[in-house]
Design a protein around this nucleic acid. Sequence first.
DNA 1: TCTTGACTTGGACTCTGTCCATCGTAGGAT
DNA 2: ATCCTACGATGGACAGAGTCCAAGTCAAGA
Lengths: 136, 136
Amino acid sequence: MSDLLERLRGRGWRLTSQRRVVAQVLDGDHVHLTADEVHALAARRLPEISRATVYNTLGELVSLGEVIEVSTAGRAMRYDPNARHPHQHLVCSGCGTVRDVHPNGDPLAVLPAAERFGFTVSDVEVTYRGLCPSCG
Amino acid sequence: MSDLLERLRGRGWRLTSQRRVVAQVLDGDHVHLTADEVHALAARRLPEISRATVYNTLGELVSLGEVIEVSTAGRAMRYDPNARHPHQHLVCSGCGTVRDVHPNGDPLAVLPAAERFGFTVSDVEVTYRGLCPSCG
DNA sequence: TCTTGACTTGGACTCTGTCCATCGTAGGAT
DNA sequence: ATCCTACGATGGACAGAGTCCAAGTCAAGA
């Protein structure tokens, strides 16, 4: 993620302090923060950053493919910067903790053409649910 | 679903007109309604039914395992009465339409024990995303 | 340094869902 | 058939997550 800012500059992004801080907060490979958590962490470095800006920036990072949205059923969306290596998620039904997991095989490949109903299928999201050691 | 009411009575449910109407609305094998859609359809038969009752009843049906919750990323939760036959979902990123699909193999089986981190994994939810013929 | 349009702000707003005090009624008891 | 009562329904207030917008700010090219 160290070169994320480089890549963004290359895409014509204006490098504001707000965007820099959001990118820094998302740094790391096993981070799954909610928008509000990102906002809270960003505000430690840049107290006046607004929620709207955090939402905007996260949305832009998602549509650029730099960050993945993980929906955790009812709870708030989480943002996963580990978008460069394919993986799935294991979510604790108790506390909402998220872990990256790597199932065998390609989950897209197991959907037969006859089951695609003319859709252009571009993506699969696999979410395993269960109780983590602390909640179990 | 015709015998859903029988099953519910068997579980000690009090059969109120509200619950009957919600069950009727959910009748069918490829229905994926939001709570508000269920409420709107139910209100056509029973105009004074409240949103709270619809939410309560849907929640009860889910915890009884009669109905499955389908989370569609940001949009409202959808309720799928086809809980008796295992299946996954194909969601259109354009219009939000949901179709039932049946991938090959058991998605739970492809997650190695080493990738479970001590969780008691009880469930998998596979969501294929893409554009439907109308939106593509 | 100046200019300009992209970016940020914050507060109001929407949408989805929950909570709770009060009222109504299904269905067993008589 | 009627009565009782606990379970269920009601609706309005509330809460959390996210969006929108008009006005102000500033990064970066000229």
